[in-house]
Design a protein around this nucleic acid. Structure first.
Length: 281
DNA sequence: ACGCAGGGTATTC
DNA sequence: GAATACCCTGCG
């Protein structure tokens, strides 16, 4: 992978299997904002602008250092998705799903942010998830200005832990507010150790996350897949449930048919199902 | 316009 | 395990 700096821009050359629109629309991230031909992304306390031109990724408002230390990993650029797809293609449903979302990648996002974001996601639709996460950041995050526009970082556990339910009312996130507050307090007090999950296998990790109120199996698996890069996590939401019921056999379906990267298969299937409204009346 | 569903979970039986 | 309530809002 060749990374060069040119006129304040960082350019990552020759990137295959990468489609920003599909990544942004694949339901794993909620903090990309459309800007011109690309997007502004707020993550890890930073604001960058990113677009793709032919096989090159162009990053603005960053540095060579940040790109190699953060964003290459964030966009999973060292992984050969062609190879992973080839394994999945043995499954006939995956042929259509991969064709549909051929540029999807798994983002390596912040663990804490994923925990709170997916607590918010339960029993909720994507536009509202976005607006709640947005409200959380604008009210309690740090302001970062970029091109005359204000963006806000994701608030730290400490910042949220000092808030009250009344403070969180501005989010209009309903019953989830107490879940958010409780998780923040447990993380700050050390009762819950976010980094300890790294070394756990999927079973242990799930069990640990389930001790948090508002975190069930589905949310836990999203956190593990999107925040901990545990690609053997396989979140099943309403869309995945429809895929399993309509395109597979509900009685016999097992994510293990996709192997150790079944979580990535899930992401192709989710995007395909949602995009084509599979199983909806 | 208005009832329903939305990337589920906690609680209870 | 199955049934039910849950905050609020986008969508059909």
């Amino acid at each position: 992978m060749e990374i060069i700096e040119k006129n304040e821009l960082i350019i990552i050359k020759g990137v295959l299997d990468f489609n920003l629109e599909q990544i942004v629309d694949s339901g794993q991230a909620f903090r990309f904002y459309k800007m011109g031909e690309g997007y502004v992304l707020v993550a890890f306390g930073r604001v960058i602008e990113i677009k793709k031109i032919n096989d090159d990724i162009i990053i603005e408002n960053s540095s060579l250092e940040d790109v190699s230390n953060i964003w290459v990993d964030y966009f999973d650029l060292k992984r050969d998705y062609g190879e992973i797809k080839n394994v999945f293609l043995k499954d006939s449903v995956m042929i259509s799903a991969i064709e549909y979302g051929s540029g999807i990648r798994m983002l390596a996002q912040d663990k804490w942010e994923m925990l709170i974001t997916f607590i918010i996601s339960q029993q909720n639709n994507i536009p509202r998830i976005k607006s709640i996460v947005n409200a959380l950041c604008t009210n309690f995050g740090e302001k970062v200005e970029y091109k005359g526009q204000n963006y806000y970082t994701f608030p730290t556990p400490k910042r949220i832990a000092e808030l009250t339910l009344q403070d969180l009312a501005v989010l209009k996130c309903g019953y989830r507010a107490s879940y958010i507050l409780e998780s923040a307090k447990k993380v700050v007090s050390g009762e819950f150790d976010l980094s300890a999950i790294d070394d756990m296998d999927i079973i242990e990790a799930r069990k640990a996350l389930l001790t948090l109120k508002g975190v069930g199996i589905k949310v836990a698996d999203c956190v593990l897949l999107f925040g901990y890069k545990k690609f053997n996590a396989f979140p099943v939401d309403v869309w995945m449930d429809r895929v399993i019921g309509v395109l597979y056999d509900r009685e016999t379906f097992n994510p293990e048919i996709f192997g150790e990267y079944c979580g990535i298969a899930q992401q192709y299937l989710f995007y395909y199902a949602k995009g084509t409204k599979i199983g909806k009346k």
